[in-house]
């Protein structure tokens, strides 16, 4: 390893000013994406649109008459497979994987006892929270992009591809539709920011990562159930899952940005509240694991 044969003096050198933690963030990403678990989750997500496409292809009945209309339209245009995959994955599969990553963030380190070594390295507690959260955000982006790209690729492979019909009945070019697919993946990523912050907070409460993961996923389901009950209508605009499926507004002509904005604002609110809670909890916590 020591090919350069550095002198002892150069190894003793230290930075005079503390680094911003970019190196640690890069290392955190490397750790996240070197884990077999991460890849397994991304593969499972990629399998969602692939399974949809194959199932529709095999059944090859033009219209099932059930579910969102554009599940049917994937037979007419393969570029819809990615969007159909996201629609299926948003209520459960995406929150599941995000719950695993966010719930594991602090509790997982506590569980492997690496938390105390990170903290005495020292990475400041706030910095650790921020880096862990950003890593979870990168995972959200990777997850939604994986889904979209896998869907588009399998769609191109199995179905005809052409200009895309939007919900408004207008038709846009393939290039425009790819841009919209990217925007939808971004929308889904933004949608998961609040859940990631909740997962991070729960993760600071316990040393058992599985518990934190499960609690995060359960909360995402509870939020969606509450969102579907008319008795809790007053609560709906405040639920982090409220705008999850409104990415359809990106399929209108012209694009309706208001749901993107409202969603981003709501998620930001969750990030601020649960980020502050995570800070309050984590910065005052005795690390005894």
């Amino acid at each position: 390893m020591s090919s350069s044969d550095p002198t002892a003096a150069s190894l003793v050198a230290r930075r005079t000013r503390r680094s911003l933690g970019v190196g640690f963030f890069a290392s955190e990403l490397a750790v996240l994406f070197r884990r077999r678990r991460t890849w397994a989750m991304l593969l499972a997500l990629a399998a969602v649109p692939i399974l949809i496409a194959v199932a529709v292809r095999i059944s090859s009945s033009g219209s099932s008459g059930r579910g969102p209309a554009f599940i049917d339209s994937i037979t007419q245009n393969g570029l819809f497979v990615g969007i159909a995959g996201l629609t299926i994955a948003i209520p459960l599969f995406l929150p599941l994987t995000v719950g695993v990553v966010a719930g594991d963030s602090i509790a997982g380190e506590a569980n492997t006892a690496t938390l105390r070594y990170l903290l005495v390295s020292p990475v400041g507690r706030i910095r650790l929270l921020v880096v862990k959260y950003l890593a979870a955000v990168v995972f959200c982006l990777a997850a939604t992009l994986t889904l979209s790209i896998a869907g588009i690729l399998i769609g191109i492979a199995l179905f005809p591809v052409g200009p895309v019909t939007l919900l408004s009945g207008d038709t846009v070019s393939i290039g425009d539709s790819l841009v919209r697919s990217l925007l939808i993946a971004l929308y889904a990523t933004v949608s998961l920011l609040g859940l990631s912050a909740i997962g991070l907070f729960i993760s600071t409460l316990t040393d058992a990562p599985v518990g934190a993961m499960a609690a995060t996923v359960v909360l995402s389901i509870v939020a969606q159930v509450l969102d579907s009950l008319s008795q809790t209508e007053w609560l709906h605009p405040w639920l982090f899952s409220h705008y999850w499926l409104d990415f359809a507004d990106l399929l209108r002509q012209p694009i309706e940005w208001s749901s993107f904005g409202q969603n981003a604002l709501l998620q930001l609110g969750y990030v601020v509240v649960f980020g502050a809670l995570a800070y309050g909890r984590f910065s005052s916590k005795d690390i005894l694991s």
Partner: peptide
């Protein structure tokens, strides 16, 4: 990883 967590390393 632990070394990169040390801001002065």
């Amino acid at each position: 990883r632990l070394d990169s967590a040390d801001g002065f390393a």
